[in-house]
Computed example of a mutant assay.
Amino acid sequence: MLLVFIPSHTVAQTPPLEINIVTGNETGEYYSIAKDLEKLARTKNLDLDIIPTKGALQNVDNVFYYQSVALGITQGDILAFLNTFANKDEEVRRQAESIRVVLPLYKEQVHIITRQYIKSVEQLTGKRVSIGESGSGTSTTAATLIYQLNINPKKLETLDIKRGIDALRKKEIDALFYIVGIPAQVLQEQIFPDDNFHILPLILPSQPDDEFLAKLYSKAVIPAKTYPWQTDKVETLSVQSFLFTVAEENCDRVTPVVKLIRENLSWLKENGDPVWKQVNLKDLSELDSTRTSKCAA
């Protein structure tokens, strides 16, 4: 006789911890590095849900307003932008005071892409310029630099990067801004040598009143041949990107991601997006402790 034992109860498995993170456009680096984390999280019983957005500025709104969103990725000048306007808007002031850095990520380089006849940023005055999609970090950085460098374009467009490249190719615009870590896959794949585009050099002004810019941006170089269509190295500026949360967030949905990155950074540098190679978690010690999340410890 075959005896079959039927258990009176089954042992329930612990469901994966669900964590939402807002990223950026699906063609951008924020989305790409978040997908790396999503892949890694599956092996650690974490359910990391990646939410595409317009970018850094929208991410600040989403983490602040939606309790279901614990984490986002943004740029250092976005936080400075909010602080600058905090005294003019109570809601913006609350946002600015709430943002907390969880981990520093990588530097994002300013790409100003034009056709060859434009040789300097000063020549963008009177031209048609795309500053990136509304709500993106590119749009905020571009607007900040245009204002601080006294550039007066004829017209500003808010095009995402693929539409911007197409518009530049069709001569509907004269230049576009794109703020991204190098090498940017979309710039490698969507621009060709025959387009005859180049990246404008961008250097901080040396006047005594440039302290605002100097705090936000650091000198950077885009090495020659970073892109198939770029033959020479280009001096430009960079801005730091961060993983962030809000002061009120429960660490239960933040600390697991911090641990995931800290314990697996070597794997991410070896197997993930190339920008992971630029991540230095020691940079966290250089940040203002009052702006650092308690969950980052």
Results as ranks from 00 to 15, higher is better:
Asn62Ala: 07
Ala297Glu: 10
Asn264Leu: 07
Ala184Asp: 00
Val254Gln: 04
Lys233Arg: 02
Ala86Asn: 11
Ser120Thr: 12
Leu200Arg: 07
Asp174Phe: 06
Leu79His: 10
Val63Arg: 06
Ile113Gln: 06
Lys170Asn: 05
Cys251Ile: 03
Leu82Gly: 07
Ser32Lys: 14
Gln116Asn: 08
His111Asp: 11
Ile182Val: 10
Ser8Val: 07
Ser238Asp: 09
Leu37Glu: 05
Ile99His: 07
Thr74Asp: 09
Gln240Gly: 01
Val101Arg: 15
Asp61Asn: 12
Gln190Glu: 11
Glu189Cys: 13
Lys269Glu: 10
Gly28Phe: 01
Glu211Ser: 13
Leu187Glu: 01
Ala297Val: 05
Pro52Ile: 00
Ser8Met: 09
Gln240Cys: 01
Val186Leu: 04
Trp276Cys: 09
Glu286Lys: 13
Gln13Glu: 02
Tyr217Lys: 03
Leu3Met: 11
Ala142Ser: 13
Ala224Ser: 10
Glu270Ile: 12
Ser285Arg: 05
Ile182Ser: 14
Pro205Trp: 00
Lys127Ile: 00
Thr27His: 15
Val257Cys: 07
Thr84His: 14
Tyr66Ala: 15
Ala96Met: 02
Asp232Leu: 05
Met1Phe: 15
Glu97Gln: 14
Gly126Met: 09
Lys154Tyr: 04
Val4Pro: 06
Phe85Ala: 09
Leu149Ile: 02
Glu263Gly: 06
Asp209Gln: 15
Ala167Asn: 11
Leu124Ala: 09
Leu71Ala: 01
Lys35Ser: 14
Asp77His: 05
Ser293Glu: 10
Thr114Tyr: 10
Asn45Gly: 06
Val275Asp: 01
Glu91Lys: 15
Glu189Gln: 14
Gln240Val: 00
Pro193Lys: 04
Ile131Tyr: 02
Thr10His: 02
Met1Trp: 12
Thr84Glu: 11
Gln67Lys: 08
Gln109Ala: 08
Arg100Gln: 09
Asp174Val: 04
Val254Ser: 06
Ala175Gln: 04
Ala143Ile: 07
Tyr117Ala: 15
Thr74Trp: 10
Ala220Ser: 14
Thr138Lys: 11
Ser238His: 02
Val101Phe: 12
Glu18Cys: 13
Glu189Thr: 15
Ala297His: 13
Thr140Glu: 14
Ser206Thr: 06
Ile165Ser: 11
Arg100Tyr: 08
Val22Glu: 01
Val239Glu: 07
Glu26Ala: 12
Ile78Gly: 01
Pro228Glu: 01
Gly126Pro: 12
Gln13Phe: 05
Ser139His: 04
